[in-house]
Design a protein around this nucleic acid. Structure first.
Length: 683
DNA sequence: ACGGAAATAT
DNA sequence: GATATTTCCG
């Protein structure tokens, strides 16, 4: 119960200095020679291995050449003449998935916001306190674990979890010393340099889609020849390892065995024994994802009809589930294996990705997982607001402790109400206007039943095989069609340019709606959020359970109720068929429109349901929306920021096109003069 | 490379 | 606490 132990705070709450991993390669980017020198010296002093370059372009080139494996961190100034610092942030983030700490001389919150929006995981205001420099290593650690630890948003020790050391001496494994001999040899060698090697393997989520394919292959191969390697090969799913398959196969075999041994096991499918087994198995493991029509041509893969497919009953059963409450209401048709995640449906992130197993991820611009992380950023921003140069480093328990509710708040407010104007941006499935959908439970129902998994597949369910969905083409929704393909392209073959376009698109749309209240983030952004997470994250590790919370929420929203809320309607397109089964099972239907829209998990609902930001004190609310914004990854959503001067269009002071020594001095000295002399200040 | 089983994550 | 998934090891 290692994880349990950690959750209960048995382990160090903070990233202790003891765990400082010396020799992290830090790429220092600053066009100013003096600055760079100082920075490098500081890094060195802090036991890092700085690799300084003079400008953004060189830095990017270097990064691309050496690969992210060579660097652990990037510390870059955002004020560079040769390249937009923010663009650099983004590029690095998207391409390399490296923690990037932005350096800024002005320390303005707008700059910080922007930097964060562009992927910075933290920022340091010059003159930097050496302590801050010293602490940046924690981002590497956090990066590795926040995602993994995240989820239990309701736990009060979340902050501690986030701050937990990861790569410390033991390499990737932060596991406590195993009681067994097996893990004793912690001191493996893969800890220091190869950050990559220290990374935990992304957790693959065996959705029904994936499982379907798996079963299909197994069936095709025959039980005897169905060995991991062969299966893997035939499955032809990217990012799926032999181990993954082996593991799944193991589980499957175990299941088969169990079924064989216990023929009395309930068979709700009423199928042949084989079918039953498969079906049951699916029930056992599938993630509430509608089966792929492609894999199961019967085309009846929905909760209303569960006919056998020519390919077999693979995962045909959908696990009706009330995502909102984390309970399962499948009419006893299926085991409740996938319902453990109270935070939402365990949907995978790869909607419509044709060959991607769902995995957890730790997106750069994704702070959901790190409640404390958010808190940290929030604090930093707050400090920035008050012109206080933060000395404490984000992630430290102390900081986290200051925002015990951070996670809850953010979640509750994550998906504010969608204004109609925005809704109109999206055409529903089959050309239905969102407003025309879901108003009546039947509408959704019929839609979902008729078109099977389209909406689900395209909008919500991160099906690994959605690409092969028979019904996919039926979905005329421009939104869906436009977005999904990009997901495929950006996630696993991240192209910064593509991503940029992607974001821009969204930004434009968002901007077009001129949202400026904290509850105006609409369906679009909600749906996009996960995409951004994915796209901006090379290691989709936490997608399933974290990144997609938004999606999950959407699902709850759209499928669980026939709420009259227009917002809800907006969410309908993503309503999972499975949810339809629940009909009005979700309690959300009884909730106010806003709540419906935001679909806050139970715990969060308590929080007020509606936009939490509005119920919170200024800064607090600000932070909440900040996350949303970050999640959105686009500036378009910035309008929701309570902070007035951080609108999308703000090109304000942080946009200094040029940054020369003169500016530097001007910026630095006043800054230094304005604060107590700090012997630790780097520059 | 496999598959069982322990470890760990959710 | 139960399971799912990963990791280790023969």
């Amino acid at each position: 119960m290692a994880s349990g132990d950690r959750r209960h705070g048995k382990e160090p709450a903070a990233l202790e200095e003891d765990n400082f991993p010396e020799g992290l390669h830090v790429l220092a980017v600053d066009d100013n020679h003096v600055c760079l020198r100082v920075l490098e010296a500081a890094l060195r002093q802090c036991k890092y291995k700085p690799t300084g370059v003079m400008d953004g372009r060189t830095a990017l080139k270097l990064l691309r050449e050496k690969g992210e494996d060579h660097f652990h961190l990037v510390n870059t100034d955002v004020h560079m003449p040769d390249m937009d610092g923010f663009q650099l942030l983004e590029l690095i983030g998207l391409e390399m998935d490296l923690p990037v700490i932005m350096l800024s001389v002005n320390g303005e919150k707008a700059t910080m916001y922007r930097g964060i929006r562009h992927g910075a995981c933290d920022y340091i205001v010059k003159p930097a306190d050496i302590k801050e420099i010293r602490n940046i290593w924690q981002h590497v650690v956090r990066k590795n674990h926040v995602a993994v630890i995240h989820n239990s948003s309701d736990s009060d020790d979340a902050d501690q979890r986030v701050a937990r050391p990861v790569i410390a001496k033991g390499g990737a494994k932060s596991k406590k010393c195993s009681k067994k001999k097996r893990n004793d040899g912690e001191g493996s060698d893969d800890n220091r340099g190869r950050r990559r090697n220290t990374w935990k393997k992304p957790r693959v989520s065996w959705t029904s889609e994936l499982h379907n394919r798996f079963l299909e292959v197994v069936n095709r191969l025959g039980v005897d020849r169905a060995v991991p390697k062969a299966i893997l090969q035939m499955m032809n799913v990217h990012n799926l390892s032999r181990e993954n398959v082996a593991s799944h196969l193991q589980k499957y075999r175990l299941f088969l065995k169990r079924v064989t041994d216990d023929p009395t096991k309930p068979n709700h499918m009423g199928d042949s024994s084989e079918s039953r087994r498969n079906a049951s198995y699916m029930g056992m493991s599938h993630q509430g994802v509608p089966p792929s029509s492609a894999l199961c041509p019967c085309g009846s893969h929905n909760i209303y009809t569960a006919p056998p497919s020519i390919l077999g009953p693979y995962g045909l059963s959908i696990q009706p589930r009330n995502w909102a409450t984390g309970t399962v209401d499948n009419g006893g048709l299926m085991p409740d294996t996938g319902s453990r995640h109270a935070s939402g449906p365990p949907v995978g992130p790869f909607a419509n990705t044709s060959d991607q197993p769902m995995q957890d991820a730790f997106p750069r611009i994704h702070f959901r997982s790190g409640k404390s992380y958010q808190s940290v950023l929030r604090q930093k921003l707050m400090e920035a607001n008050t012109s206080v140069v933060p000395s404490s480093h984000p992630g430290t328990s102390s900081v986290a402790a200051e925002m015990p509710n951070g996670g809850q708040l953010e979640s509750a407010n994550q998906f504010p109400v969608q204004p109609r104007e925005q809704i109109s941006h999206f055409s529903g499935p089959m050309g239905m206007r969102p407003s025309a959908m879901g108003t009546h439970g039947n509408t959704q129902l019929s839609y979902l039943a008729g078109n099977c998994s389209n909406p689900w597949q395209n909008n919500v369910v991160p099906s690994s095989f959605a690409g092969s969905m028979v019904g996919a083409p039926l979905l005329p929704s421009s939104q869906v069609n436009v977005i999904l393909p990009q997901i495929n392209q950006t996630i696993f073959a991240p192209s910064s340019s593509e991503m940029a376009v992607f974001q821009n698109e969204q930004q434009n749309q968002m901007a077009g709606t001129n949202i400026n209240n904290t509850t105006s983030v609409g369906v679009y952004s909600e749906q996009m959020t996960p995409l951004f997470n994915m796209a901006s994250n090379a290691a989709p590790m936490e997608m399933t359970s974290v990144n997609f919370s938004p999606m999950n929420q959407m699902m709850v929203n759209g499928g669980s109720t026939s709420s009259p809320s227009p917002n809800l309607q907006a969410g309908n397109p993503v309503a999972p068929p499975a949810q339809m089964a629940n009909g009005g099972g979700s309690s959300s239907s009884a909730l106010p429109g806003h709540l419906d829209s935001s679909v806050a998990p139970p715990a969060q609902m308590v929080n007020g349901g509606r936009s939490s930001s509005s119920a919170l004190p200024g800064h607090l609310g600000s932070s909440v929306t900040l996350q949303t914004q970050m999640l959105n990854g686009g500036e378009g959503a910035s309008g929701i920021l309570p902070v007035q001067d951080d609108p999308a269009g703000q090109q304000a002071s942080d946009d200094q096109p040029t940054y020369n020594t003169s500016n530097f001095l001007k910026d630095i000295f006043p800054s230094m003069a304005s604060q107590d002399f700090n012997p630790d200040a780097v520059w």
